[in-house]
């Protein structure tokens, strides 16, 4: 029997992210002081250093470019042993310089990849009410 995938435990900072993901919308936390996105949101804003960033979530385009990638052939993470090989992409989102996310590339392990390749967010429905953001190749058009 295969172990289930690890599931997120949303907290005060991340609940809007997971609620939006469940609706297949990528929404990211922005600082209320300077407006910049901070992923993941921390106790302070990494851009303006505000100690009270009061993050609010805004939907983003989900489009970005691949900065790097790896093909995971072995993992010791329960729930993923049966998923190998799979591809993880390091994506810089279009909304902001150096706004980077790491997700699975859902096109499969043999998808043609290069640095700078355009990708668009896509979602894996992992269990009832939980969808995990990933990416697919292309600009979504």
């Amino acid at each position: 029997m295969t172990a289930p995938r690890p599931l997120p435990v949303p907290d005060a900072n991340s609940t809007p992210y997971w609620e939006a993901a469940a609706r297949h919308v990528l929404a990211l936390p922005g600082c209320s002081r300077c407006g910049a996105f901070c992923v993941p949101p921390g106790p302070t804003c990494r851009h303006c250093h505000a100690a009270d960033p009061a993050f609010t979530y805004r939907p983003v385009s989900g489009r970005g470019r691949v900065r790097s990638w790896t093909v995971v052939r072995r993992t010791s993470l329960a729930g993923f042993e049966g998923e190998v090989p799979f591809v993880l992409v390091d994506v810089e989102l279009a909304e902001q310089e150096e706004l980077r996310m790491i997700g699975r590339l859902l096109d499969g392990p043999d998808a043609p990849l290069r640095a700078g390749a355009p990708v668009t967010v896509a979602f894996e429905d992992v269990t009832d009410g939980v969808a995990v953001p990933g990416f697919v190749l292309g600009d979504g058009s």
């Binding site: 997120p8 993992t75 992992v126």
Partner: peptide, 11 residues
């Protein structure tokens, strides 16, 4: 880790 582990980025 909820920002990375659910998609298999770990270790």
């Amino acid at each position: 880790q909820q920002w990375t582990v659910p998609q298999g980025f770990f270790g």
